[in-house]
Design a protein around this nucleic acid. Sequence first.
RNA 1: GGCCCCGUAGUUCAACGGAUAGAAUGGAAGUUUCCUAAACUUUAGAUACAGGUUCGAUUCCUGUCGGGGCUACCA
Length: 599
Amino acid sequence: MPVNPEKRIAEAVSEIIFQESGQHVTLENIDLQRTRKEFEGDFTLVVFPFVKIIRKSPEQCADFLGQALAARLGEIASYHVIKGFLNLTLDPAFWLEFLRSQMNNATFGVQPVSDRSQVVVEFSSPNTNKPLHLGHIRNNLLGYSVARILEAAGQKVTKVNLVNDRGIHICKSMLAYMKFGKGETPETAGKKGDKLVGDYYVRFEKELQAEVNTLVQEKGLSGEAARKQAPLMQEAQALLRKWELRDPETIEIWERMNAWVYKGFDATYRRMGVSFDKIYYESDTYLLGKELVLEGLNKGILQQKEDGSVWAELSDENLDEKLLLRADGTSVYMTQDLGTAQLRYDDFKPGKMVYVVGNEQNHHFDVLRKVLKKLGKPYAESIFHLSYGMVELPEGKMKSREGIVVDADDLMDDMFGTARKTTEELGKTQEFSEEEKERLYHVIGMGALKYFILKVDPKKNMLFNPAESIDFNGNTGPFIQYTYARIRSILRTAGTERLEAIDPRPDPGLINDKELVLLKLLYGFPQVVAEAASELSPAKIANFSYELCKTFNQFYHECSILNEPDVVISEFRLKLAQLTAQTIHNGMGLLGIDVPERM
RNA sequence: GGCCCCGUAGUUCAACGGAUAGAAUGGAAGUUUCCUAAACUUUAGAUACAGGUUCGAUUCCUGUCGGGGCUACCA
């Protein structure tokens, strides 16, 4: 029995058309899709593109191709034509063979690394002056999932994090701590380190605003001018210069505060279930960025102004000029990113560098690519910005600059609490131990959060509704987890050891529609993974998994699995359930979502 | 002002240029001597607007109207 009917059909179509008309049709131009479920058939060939070549009406064309294909390929059991669509039905024996070949495959849909070219995926990219918030959650989940999906498609992936640990914003929280901190530590304050430092950043902005208000009132300055002249801002800039000169006292405080932050971030990452293969720090890359800029200046690619600032002229690329070094010689965000890109390229020589960064930075990445191109860097074209939209909450918008943020830790606490409350109300966990309960509430709460966010197309702005995400009905993570737990329960009841020895092939004639629908859906999983990888879209996996669970429930409802008089059919169904569970497990794994054995 | 992204049932999301625009949720009505009812079944309900491109447009192009973002010597 052939293993790849799509390919065989497409090749046969190409040959048939060539014999008929003498014209070559490439495989990419043959539109063969899975038949939509409201029509009879397994694969559908769209024949409209061939009507001019074959010079027949769409219906005649489809009929001609159907006859020729059925005669040529044994696995095609029948065909029929609706308008210009040729629906092909495969022999049930093909689907049974598919089940037999995959039923004990624990890695169904997940390939081992087969592509030697590296992909580097950067995500998270926090600033050390602020705790992680809801936007970071979407970022982390997307990045982690995309990395796993690329891996499942056979690519070698390195997950990296780039920590923004230097710059004027970091100096602001340092300055506030130096002025108002009185030697406070996370321990004495009773706060996570990242929260403590974040509070000083907020404190700086508050004190600065007070100074600005005074200047505006007393000297009649504009808000913008007042901000620049305010003593605190001047001090922050002085601190940045001291930092770049490696002033020992400044460096000591900087290191101490950063260590607090990293400890806090680690706890949040661990809880979120994400990890990195390598962490870059901008304090290590900005000098390389400066070097690249100075090199470009020497070669005459970049321009220096009278005040000493260095710029890239991008008007030939339809962009404005871009500052790369300030007049005082300190570097900006773009400078750091130039250095980071170079370092990353030197480290891994990746064929592709994916940056998971919010869409408000679309312009930044446009400029980054073009500056690198101007500098003659070969990797400029391999940079891919995976741009995602904002996450909003039902209560309204989140704006980190205005202090309206949803803290990542708080949100995860919330999800855990809701998972506990909902589960306890249903009274399903009474026989669980305390540890098992804690574990389960974590898995459900995080599953709800992850699934809700990942099922949406990354580039779209989205609305996250915590209450709706944790609903056990509908297109949610907990629904999928629940379906998985039920299948596992069935398999435990049946006794899995009995399953290993049986032949899952009943007489094809004994298989009913529900079983066939489920089997065919499962068949599509590897294809879905491949699509998700090429489009960098976890949403594809999420929506497929939901479809699978729903289909399983319908199958399960109509086909009694254990109490079936016909033993062969029943065991065949158990095999089908087993492959379904495995597929849910693998699919959720690609989203970074755990599935519990019981719930 | 200029540039970019987005406008789909009441709501949250789907739909390589393909068939009768799918789900879920909320609304209405049902199903439990049964292996997890956190399930299943039935039902009403949508492509912002106007043109164009073609066998065919939610999808591509143009314009209008809405929403968001960017346009920093912040990151």
